[in-house]
Design a protein around this nucleic acid. Structure first.
Lengths: 126, 126
DNA sequence: GGCGTATTTAACTTAAATGTTAATTAACTA
DNA sequence: TAGTTAATTAACATTTAAGTTAAATACGCC
């Protein structure tokens, strides 16, 4: 039910994270993705299925190839969850500075938006 | 070996994420943490051990209680990994804007640092 | 249709995760 | 010291994950 379960579990495997790293450079077929690993093709195929279900990748069809590419949805889910804990992980000076700058920027944007949109409560869900 | 394995795996369980959510509000004992769950105390105790090994929490000792609190290290590891994929998950307008502002801020800081520090290559480890 | 390449599914094995209850350890209290 | 509360460890059952090899499917080409 909770898609975060699926997504975090998918990311817990080093083979799958390596696949994502490769796909960050661009599309690739199953065989191409399998090449670096001492592992059978069916094993890779199942890793890809796990990544797909976690919406970390999506797959197309090009003749007998199944090109894989990153799907941002899974990463977005994680990023959104991480936001709730930002004050815990962003406590180093450099990052805290970015965070503060970001808060200011956000405040500015919200202020602007208030002027333009003027009414209706469709702010952030939480 | 790879601590990301451990940390992502720890986060893949909804009970453990709920525990973290609770701890984001402050310290709590094992029994306190266990209360909301229809699960035995030993089960919770093991979840806490998993979270501790992932450096998502740390534990102290107060008489017979073992107060738990968030440990930011695990979250930092995840956040750092996520950074490599920022352009994929931060593609919505609002977030991209923060990202761009952050890049500018970072560039400014780096420029400043160059002037002050002047030499020696002790930049980010990776 | 039959062949070659790419990928997936099936059947199976092994290892790890998650929960249970019962027993144990740790620290305070009377 | 005996008793109480808090938490962990032990022993066990069940489920899920991850790999293997062999067979099946999908597609293009001749």
């Amino acid at each position: 039910m909770d898609s975060l379960d699926t997504t975090f579990a998918a990311l817990a495997d080093p083979t799958r994270r390596a696949i994502l790293a490769k796909l960050a450079l661009g599309e690739a077929s199953v065989t191409e993705l399998a090449k670096p690993f001492a592992m059978s093709l069916p094993a890779i195929s199942r890793h890809l299925k796990v990544l797909e279900q976690a919406r970390l990748i999506s797959r197309g069809r090009d003749a007998q190839w199944r090109p894989c590419r990153l799907d941002s949805q899974g990463l977005k889910d994680i990023a959104e969850w991480m936001e709730h804990y930002r004050k815990f992980w962003a406590e180093s000076l450099d990052r805290m500075q970015s965070y503060v700058e970001q808060l200011h920027a956000e405040a500015e944007r919200n202020a602007k938006r208030k002027k333009v949109v003027s009414k209706g409560k469709h702010g952030k869900k939480k």
